[in-house]
Simulated assay, not measured.
Amino acid sequence: METQIVQQLHALRELNPLVHNITNFVVMNNTANALLAVGASPVMVHAKQEVRDVVNISGALVINVGTLSEQWAEAMLIAAEHARAIGCPWVLDPVGAGISPFRNELLKELVQLGPTVIRGNASEIIALNNFSLSSSKGVDSTLPSEKAFAAGTELQKAYGAEVCISGDTDYIISSDRWVEVRNGSVLMTKVTGLGCTATALIGAFLSLRKAPFEEAVAGVSVLSLAGQLAAADAIGPGTLQWKLYDTLYRLSADELLTYLDIEQHAF
């Protein structure tokens, strides 16, 4: 798979796709910079009056429910429904799933609109699977990623989306196979929104519109490896953040082939 990811990153940089993000206040700047660094072009449009127009010209749509409002929720539903109607791939990040009935009700509606990929941490994936109220710490996971593997497989079967679970080991689950990505760094947990960044990079790779599972694997793998390489000489979360952009921008085929630690399994 490493060679395939090298090819996908090259294709992404050549394509320079527009990625439409309806995302949260906390991560907008980080997400935009990461997308630019990897070779995509970000746009953040939230008004319900124009989301259809932007989906029309985008390679993919990213919906991240981190900082909700009634108006943004409506725009998310309009954008997701339109993306499904025109065949635009889209990725759902259920940030904070389970922290309130309002959030859960919106997520119930969004998953019915056919996300191409769902990405969250372990607590979010478990809460999304049964729409329970969660005991997680806000948007942080209280569980290791492997604890959500069963919930992730159930979500995949229920909605047909590729499911990504972030954690010490990242899992990407499809109908007939799953992948482990064992790159990353514990220092990444000290920078806000890197899970959201992974979601945005998945959106960038989905813009290739060829193989959603492989594109989800590429998005997760590129962010995890870039974080690992950036953390190697970072002195803390501040330097990790700016080094991450540089690493994404400079990430090479040799680094991907040498340092990626991924394994594919069949169900």
Rank of each mutant, 00 (worst) to 15 (best):
A226N: 11
V220K: 07
A218V: 01
G236Y: 10
K243Y: 10
P237C: 02
D233R: 10
G219S: 13
A231Y: 05
A230T: 14
L240A: 12
G227R: 05
V220M: 15
L223G: 11
A231F: 09
Q228I: 03
S224I: 00
Q241T: 15
A231R: 06
Q228F: 02
V220R: 09
D233K: 12
G238S: 10
A218H: 05
L223C: 13
G238C: 07
G227S: 09
K243C: 10
L223V: 14
V217P: 04
G227V: 06
D246V: 07
D246T: 13
K243V: 08
S224R: 07
T247G: 05
L248R: 03
I235F: 15
Y245S: 00
A234Y: 04
T247L: 02
G227L: 01
G236H: 10
V222W: 05
L240D: 08
V217S: 07
T239N: 11
S221Y: 00
L240G: 04
A230H: 13
G236K: 09
T239L: 10
Q241R: 14
T247W: 01
A234F: 06
A218R: 06
Q241K: 15
A230L: 14
L225S: 04
D246K: 09
I235G: 14
D233A: 10
K243T: 09
A230I: 13
V217G: 03
K243A: 12
A231T: 13
K243M: 13
G219M: 12
L240M: 15
G219C: 11
A226G: 13
D233Q: 13
A218C: 03
G227E: 01
W242P: 11
D233F: 07
A218Q: 02
W242V: 15
G238Q: 08
V220S: 10
K243G: 12
L225N: 04
S221W: 00
A231S: 15
G219F: 01
G219V: 12
Q241D: 10
Q228M: 11
A230W: 05
P237F: 00
D233S: 14
A218E: 01
G227I: 03
L229Q: 00
A230R: 12
S224N: 13
T239E: 12
A234P: 04
L244I: 09
L240F: 10
D233E: 15
L223F: 13
D246Y: 08
A234S: 13
V220Y: 00
G219L: 12
A218T: 02
A226V: 10
L229A: 01
P237K: 01
L223Y: 09
A231W: 02
L223M: 15
A218M: 04
V217Q: 06
A218W: 07
T239Q: 12
A231Q: 09
V222R: 05
P237L: 05
A226H: 07
S224M: 08
G238R: 04
Q228S: 09
A226L: 08
V217I: 01
Q228D: 03
